[in-house]
Computed example of a mutant assay.
Amino acid sequence: MPLHVPPAPAPALRSVLSALGSPAAVNDAHTPALRAHQGPMTVELPLPVHVLDRLHTSHLAAGGRPPRTRLTGWRFLIRGGDRFIAAADTRLTPEGWVFSHFFEGPYVAATERALRQAESLGSNFQPRLLSVPELYMLTLWLHGAVGADASAGLPAAADLLVPLAPAPPGIAAYRPHPVSELLPVLTHRLTPPLPPELAAPAA
């Protein structure tokens, strides 16, 4: 089924289109593929970027509230010819949405692959990106509430998280995980081990 890609704020899209049309902005970017591309380029697939805050202090594994998330920007994939060659990030300032930077690298291709895979799952989702800074991890967040405000909301237990490559060791990239299963695993990874004197009762 098609994904329900949320509309990006108009000023965010305008800022990216303006930067893409600026030779100075393109030439200053650390994106050889973007600078070298000959021909038209289009800006597609706007995705809100959320960050998972304070995962290590979450009590989700014990049935408590999920970690907090916050919107940090909107990301747009840039198509050149028959493939995506780069991406553009925007950020919110007191004056509104502004262009942040262009980039390329593994997450561009990984995002495209995960989105194609999500379209074949047979369910309706609103695609988002969810970053886990504490694990240097980025996931495609497939939110079940397709009509929800894309700038807000917490991951629901039945939502899916698809780790993008490169994923942390021991976590398979591109494998969809229900939030209820993956977040406790991530929380456990960030939980400091108990001191030896507390880990086991004294003999």
Rank of each mutant, 00 (worst) to 15 (best):
H56L: 03
T57Q: 14
H59P: 02
H59N: 15
H59Q: 11
H59G: 12
A62T: 05
A62I: 05
P66H: 09
R68G: 15
L71E: 06
T72A: 11
G73A: 07
W74G: 13
F76E: 11
R79S: 07
R79Q: 15
G80Q: 01
G80L: 06
G80W: 06
G81A: 02
R83C: 05
R83Q: 06
R83Y: 10
F84Q: 14
F84M: 12
F84N: 07
I85M: 03
I85P: 00
A86Q: 05
A87G: 05
A88W: 06
D89Y: 02
T90Q: 03
L92N: 10
T93D: 05
P94T: 05
P94S: 09
W97I: 11
W97G: 02
V98R: 12
F99G: 00
F99W: 02
S100I: 07
S100M: 06
H101G: 01
H101Q: 11
H101N: 07
F102N: 09
F103R: 09
F103I: 00
P106R: 15
V108I: 09
A109K: 10
A110K: 00
T111P: 03
R113N: 00
R113G: 15
R113Q: 13
A114W: 00
A114N: 02
L115G: 08
R116K: 12
R116S: 15
Q117P: 01
Q117F: 10
E119M: 09
S120A: 15
S120E: 15
S120P: 07
L121E: 14
G122S: 04
S123N: 12
F125E: 01
P127L: 14
R128P: 08
L130G: 01
S131R: 03
P133N: 12
P133T: 09
E134Q: 11
L135C: 02
Y136D: 14
L138I: 08
L140E: 09
W141T: 02
L142Q: 07
L142R: 08
A145H: 13
